[in-house]
Simulated scan of single mutants.
Amino acid sequence: MSADKAFDLLYAEFKQVSDASLWIVDENISTQAIPAATPLICAISNRLDIAQSLQRLGWDCSFNDYLLEAWPEKHFYNIFLRIPKEKAQAHYVINQAQRLLANGGSLYLSGLKQEGIKGFIERAGTLTSAPIQTWKADKQTWAGKITFDGTSAALLDDKSYRSLRQAPSDLTFSFWSKPGIFGWDKIDKGSELLIQHLKELTAGIDHIKSVLDIGCGYGYLSLHTAKQLNTQVTATDNNAAAILACQTNLEHYQLNGSAMADNCADNIKERFSLVICNPPFHSGFGVENDLTDRFLDSAAKHLTADGLAIFVVNLHIPLERKASRYFTLCETPVVTDHFKLVRLSQPKR
């Protein structure tokens, strides 16, 4: 049994699979409780770390931004989705399920009541005249089975999930972004604070020849840093949509940089003069305390001996205490009501 009962509801249905099926996986999953690979079920994830975990366990899993259009019509008999945080993403999958499911095939949705699972099941049910089946693990955890019968040509509003659009903007850039990227349609206040103080925090340092942005998202920090410091930026993220958007932004504004899919820069061997990071502390619907440590460890491993790392975090994150394990010098030169900028140097890695 996993820590997420909504996944357990789906896993129970895996045992009944007798034809080609698709499992759509995102960041909500706990990799500690993934069931054994099922030969008739292939998986797809927009998270590189999740895809790699599934592959190591024997699953046939691909990594991309849910390119469901790549499969022909009526290709699957079952599609499984534990609903994600991004409503547009869930609607996109439901819309594609109508095309991908063979006659009599079913879409299985699961999730928690407070996440809106009942609404998702009901909206999916409006696309078919076949009766909906629902069941639950407890009062909060529900699942639904929707069988599409071809009676509806309607689609749910998925915010044109597949398409990049110039969504958030500031006085310097209008960023290409899309649903499926964390904070895709806004400018993160913490990242904005870091850029406001970037010049002063790097003042007096004349050796910034290369920059690593760990967890780049659509590229806010990467673009501003490349422009302000006139330097080369390597941007990395484990989200497929984020890499697409960040690379598009770098190319659109003709900045010196590139984006690559990687999990906490694990596969990057180069060391950098500057590491910038606005680390996530949420994973799926929960909070992972070790995420900050993973980003600090990566920053230390990728920083030159005389380099500098700048982190922006929420005030409640004890970054300074955690950072002492990875860096000799740690200072907090900027503190606001909600965020702090932490300047790290002399890596111990």
Rank of each mutant, 00 (worst) to 15 (best):
A124N: 12
A124E: 12
S129Q: 05
A130V: 08
A130L: 07
P131D: 10
T134S: 15
T134E: 14
K136T: 07
K136E: 13
D138G: 11
K139M: 12
K139V: 11
Q140N: 14
Q140R: 15
T141W: 04
A143L: 12
D149M: 07
D149W: 07
S152F: 03
A153Q: 15
D157Y: 12
D158C: 09
K159Q: 15
K159M: 11
S160V: 09
Y161V: 05
R162K: 14
R165E: 09
A167H: 15
A167K: 10
A167L: 14
S169W: 13
D170E: 12
D170T: 11
L171R: 11
T172H: 08
T172P: 06
T172S: 15
F173T: 10
S174D: 08
S174W: 14
F175L: 07
K178I: 03
G180N: 04
G180R: 05
I181Y: 04
F182D: 04
F182R: 09
W184R: 06
D185M: 05
D185K: 11
D185A: 14
D185Y: 06
D188E: 00
K189Y: 07
K189P: 06
G190A: 07
S191D: 01
S191C: 06
L194Q: 04
I195E: 04
Q196V: 11
H197R: 14
H197I: 04
L201Y: 10
T202N: 15
A203H: 13
A203I: 08
G204R: 10
G204W: 13
I208M: 03
K209E: 13
K209R: 05
K209L: 02
L212N: 00
L212I: 03
G215H: 06
G215I: 04
C216D: 07
G217E: 04
Y218A: 03
G219I: 01
G219C: 01
L223I: 06
T225C: 13
T225S: 08
K227D: 07
Q228H: 08
N230H: 06
N230S: 05
T231N: 03
T231C: 14
Q232F: 15
V233S: 09
T234S: 10
T234H: 11
T236F: 02
T236I: 00
D237R: 00
D237S: 01
N239W: 04
N239M: 00
L244I: 15
L244N: 14
N249K: 11
N249Q: 11
N249M: 09
E251I: 07
E251D: 15
E251P: 02
E251R: 13
H252E: 11
Q254L: 15
G257L: 10
G257E: 14
A259F: 05
M260W: 03
A261N: 02
D262Y: 01
D262K: 01
N263C: 00
C264Y: 00
A265Y: 01
D266K: 02
D266V: 00
